[in-house]
Design a protein around this nucleic acid. Structure first.
Length: 835
DNA sequence: GCAAGGTC
């Protein structure tokens, strides 16, 4: 019998550390095995995986898209191979002589599969060690201790359900993706993908766009009157009873509206015919799960992707709980008073926490999803100081704290007052609401709690009509899905998971299927959905997931096997391919046409081809003639952002306007030909002699605008003399009267006409460039490397790496070993990007 | 180089 350690395996490092702390009574110590954290105490070791450390894929001989027919993938074998080599190696090393192994991965289906993958890795090197499974839904003293006192066995059926999903997703996704990409000859980075989750999500967006396109607006009118009691005036709206006896405000006939308005205008007073008061309780919201968190963060301006990334950072830093959860019910272990106590001394939250603690009984709200995965998102008792966080991080942190506050706060109360009055036979109504008890709104200001005023009036009272108005309106098409609405809808449809839904949306952006925010589908997206609807309907239908869920349930219950389910699915895909292969050429043409339409700006003014958006080898965008190389006509595009073709076009040149998408710096470029002509008209402005060739050849320095839109100070003898100085990309350049004594050049000032940014006195362009270069020597600073921020730089310094040169010299594995949460690959990435 | 699912 081996005397080796007992090995505990968790799904992630963070969980490993916390479980080790609980089980060891905080005595566990961290050591590094193969660059992976291992927590050690007594005869025990605890290691965290990084989710799936093995992946499924086809064998390498199926890698070449052109050599293998997509249909062949349906029956191709599927391998499992390590994707996190260092973790797998560490796991093998530790399990070789383990006396017992305990799988402590997350308590959900995917966690069971990850546990089974770990189990198989253990078995490869140790065929006799006993392997147990523990399950707990939150990492608290009580739950963890209890789980380890009552170990269970791995549920192989549940894991097999997860494996079936892996296989089906791979086979359908890979075969169809390759088919569509090959048919449209899109083989580079711009392949055309479909999948069980991205398919229906994309169809959701495309369907909404179809509704918008098909929408036929209808005219209607609404009538309003200002009523006055004493000095208080309020607005009331005209309504009538429709055929069904329901109240209606919209008047659909113009003549009717005009007639009613005539009457209303003639009325001098209105008599109150009914007054109704009622109080409504407004209960505080449920705890955050991922979807609701993303939604709330969205309402304060964060994209789903950004919100999750900040949440991830706050979680890793220990300030809030795990951000990926379906659960909206706090675990019993959570003591709201204790958690509130942690906030009482805080400058921002102290008063609110104190006032909440004054409640006699604290009963947190609960949502509808009680799951075993993780607790709802809430702050931990460990508080950051405001200076520890960036502004965005703080804003998101505050949201999470305040949501927790709201869930333990009192209900609010509203008083609604509805008044109906009669003016010359026309009915008018006004709805007022007053917040009579602030309740949770006092600690959670993210919901709208604005009041609308209607004075206290009584039945029979006469009110003066002080003003009347008729508004002509039109019915509006349905609104596009925003990112958070999309994620909510995906959740309702049962597609994707809490951890992947935001990634799926990002993927649609990456594939050029959607653009802008709220996302709009491209022509390509429409074509992909159309082709799928015709030949592979299941891949754009939520039914595929519903069916898969049912099959997985069956496997979990032991009523079906993995083979049954995957075999049936493969047969269905075979059928799909029969239809698809017959029409491959047609599908390809349709996709290609859409791809081209997404890029076309208009007609080339010098040939009868189209002008399309192209990307240069260096990665910058420009507009070029599709007839290249016969026609070499080009137009420049700004170098910041990704071009988006707008619907509106230039009246003079009949070219589409272009918008440059660059996050917050997004701007409309307009007609590319107009822009190019403007740039050509600007004459180079001479500001002095060229220091390089001025004396000898009379070269002069001038402010020049390049066709790319960038500006510089350059020699007029270019290209014979290439002396140049850079100028900032943004802002208007102003040449001042003041001269630089040293270089005899005028000082330059940059002004920002379209923003409130303060002007920037750049000064003499030569002095400015010298200063700039002096700063650049500090490219030796670690922070100048992409991926290294302030905190990482500190960690690197602690590991003995002071600057970029020493980072480049470092041995990746050795350095990774010295740094928490940094792998050798990351170090290599830094090294290459430092070049 | 394909998917979706973990995690960073």
């Amino acid at each position: 019998m081996s005397k080796g350690p007992e090995l505990i395996i968790t799904e992630k490092d963070n969980a490993a550390r916390r479980i080790a702390d609980i089980l060891s009574g905080e005595s566990a110590e961290a050591e590094r095995v193969n660059g992976v954290n291992v927590y050690k105490w007594g005869g025990k070791r605890c290691i965290g995986l990084s989710g799936h450390v093995v992946g499924v894929d086809f064998p390498p001989e199926y890698n070449d898209w052109r050599d293998v027919e997509p249909v062949e993938l349906i029956g191709a074998p599927i391998d499992k191979h390590p994707t996190q080599e260092n973790i797998v190696a560490a796991l093998r090393r530790l399990s070789r002589n383990a006396r017992r192994v305990v799988i402590a991965t997350d308590y959900d289906r995917e966690g069971e599969l990850i546990g089974k993958e770990a189990y198989e890795l253990v078995r490869e090197v140790n065929d006799s060690v006993p392997v147990d499974r523990v399950r707990f839904s939150s990492i608290t003293d009580r739950e963890v201790t209890e789980a380890f006192e009552n170990p269970d066995e791995l549920d192989f059926d549940l894991a097999a359900a997860g494996e079936a999903r892996q296989i089906i997703d791979l086979v359908w996704g890979a075969a169809l993706t390759r088919f569509l990409s090959l048919s449209a000859r899109q083989l580079g980075d711009d392949f055309i993908s479909v999948g069980r989750v991205q398919g229906p999500t994309l169809k959701l967006i495309v369907d909404r766009e179809r509704e918008i396109d098909a929408f036929d607006p209808e005219d209607y009118w609404e009538l309003f009157a200002d009523l006055q009691k004493d000095a208080e005036s309020f607005e009331a709206q005209y309504f009538y009873l429709d055929e069904d006896g329901n109240e209606a405000e919209r008047v659909w006939d113009g003549d009717d509206a005009e007639k009613a308005y005539e009457t209303l205008r003639g009325a001098e007073a209105a008599t109150v015919t009914s007054v109704r008061r009622r109080t409504r309780t407004d209960d505080p919201p449920a705890p955050f799960n991922t979807t609701q968190f993303i939604r709330a963060a969205g309402s304060i301006g964060y994209s789903a992707q950004r919100a999750m990334s900040i949440a991830e950072d706050l979680y890793t830093a220990g300030y809030m709980t795990y951000p990926r959860t379906d659960n909206t019910v706090y675990p019993e272990d959570l003591d709201p008073r204790e958690l509130l106590d942690a906030f009482t001394a805080n400058r921002t939250f102290g008063d609110d926490a104190q006032s909440l603690l004054e409640r006699e009984e604290i009963e947190p709200t609960a949502g509808d999803n009680k799951t075993t995965d993780h607790p709802p998102i809430h702050p931990t008792g460990e508080l950051p100081s405001r200076a520890d966080l960036t502004e965005d991080e703080w804003e998101v942190y505050e949201l999470v704290v305040r949501r927790f506050f709201a869930t333990v706060a009192e209900s609010a109360e509203w008083e609604h007052l509805r008044v109906v009055a009669d003016a010359a036979g026309l009915s008018l109504k006004a709805n007022g609401k007053r917040l009579v008890k602030e309740g949770y709104h006092a600690v959670y200001p993210y919901f709208n709690s604005s009041e609308s005023f209607v004075p206290d009036v009584e039945e029979g009272e006469e009110l003066a009509v002080t003003d009347t108005e008729m508004e002509a309106k039109q019915t509006q098409p349905p609104r596009r899905y925003g990112q958070s609405r999309l994620i909510e809808t995906m959740e309702q449809m049962g597609i994707g998971t809490k951890a992947t839904r935001h990634d799926v949306i990002q993927k649609l952006y990456d594939r050029n299927y959607i653009e802008s925010d709220p996302p709009r589908p491209t022509r390509l997206a429409r074509a992909v959905v159309e082709a799928s609807e015709e030949f592979a309907e299941l891949i754009v239908s939520e039914e595929m997931t519903a069916q898969l869920e049912a099959d997985m349930q069956a496997i979990t219950r032991g009523e079906a096997t993995l083979d049954d389910v995957t075999e049936e699915s493969r047969e269905m895909l075979e059928d799909v391919f029969e239809g698809l292969m017959e029409s491959g050429e047609e599908v390809g043409k349709h996709l290609q046409k859409s791809l081209k339409a997404d890029k076309t700006v208009g007609q080339c003014p010098e040939s009868d081809h189209d002008l399309v958006i192209r990307k240069s080898r260096r990665g910058s965008y420009f507009i070029g003639c599709d007839g290249y190389p016969d026609c070499t006509y080009t137009l420049p595009l700004p170098s910041t952002g990704k071009p988006l073709i707008l619907e509106e076009s230039c009246e003079e040149h009949d070219l589409s306007h272009v918008k440059m998408l660059a996050g917050r710096k997004t701007f409309v470029h307009g007609c590319p030909l107009c822009k190019a002509e403007e740039a050509d008209e600007e004459e180079d402005l001479v500001i002095g002699a060229c220091p390089e060739c001025g004396e000898e050849h009379g070269g002069e320095l001038a402010i020049k605008r390049l066709r790319s839109g960038s500006r510089l100070v350059g020699c007029t003898r270019y290209p014979d003399c290439d002396y140049s100085l850079p100028l900032p990309r943004r802002g208007d350049i102003e040449v001042t009267d003041e001269d630089c004594e040293e270089h005899d050049l005028p000082k330059i000032r940059i002004t920002y006409e379209d923003s409130d940014r303060e002007p920037w006195d750049l000064g003499c362009p030569i002095c400015n460039y010298r200063e700039y270069q002096a700063e650049q020597v500090d490219g030796s600073q670690l922070e100048s490397v992409t991926g290294i921020g302030e905190k990482t730089a500190e960690k690197l310094k602690a590991a003995g790496v002071e600057d970029v040169p020493s980072l480049k010299e470092a041995e990746p594995d050795a350095l990774a070993d010295l740094m928490d949460g940094v792998g050798p690959d990351t170090v290599r990435k830094w090294q290459t990007s430092a070049d």
